[in-house]
């Protein structure tokens, strides 16, 4: 693979939106997860609770979608709060 191919692939990676996904963890308290969503994303309590319940009942919730760099920062913050969070390509 040539250098141009690598550059193109990296540009595509940065251009496509990425999901921030939070996965269920039976140890983390529901109130704690809600609080973390409010702190990290600035969500209102109702929206934070909606995502928390989705995590709890469906096993995962896409809590944010957007540019890769910002998504990485969000995943880092969520890990700092000990939540199981991953970065996923939307395509």
């Amino acid at each position: 693979m040539g250098e141009t191919d690598v550059e193109t692939k990296t540009e595509v990676d940065l251009a496509i939106p990425w999901n921030v996904v939070v996965h269920n963890d039976p140890v983390n308290l529901m109130s704690y997860v809600t609080m973390v969503f409010q702190k990290v994303f600035g969500y209102a309590k109702e929206k934070a609770q909606k995502h928390m319940l989705e995590v709890h009942y469906k096993g995962r919730s896409i809590v944010w979608t957007g540019a890769r760099e910002q998504a990485e920062l969000y995943v880092q913050r969520l890990h700092g709060y000990l939540l199981l969070a991953t970065l996923e390509r939307t395509q």
Partner: peptide, 29 residues
């Protein structure tokens, strides 16, 4: 569990970068 992976194992580069640059920061936190 404390230092869980940030992406699916297929995202090898993301995981490598994370372990090198982010994990030490989280450990420090």
């Amino acid at each position: 569990r404390l230092f869980s992976k940030p992406a699916d194992p297929s995202e090898a580069q993301i995981i490598r970068d994370w372990e090198e640059f982010v994990r030490p920061e989280i450990r420090h936190l």
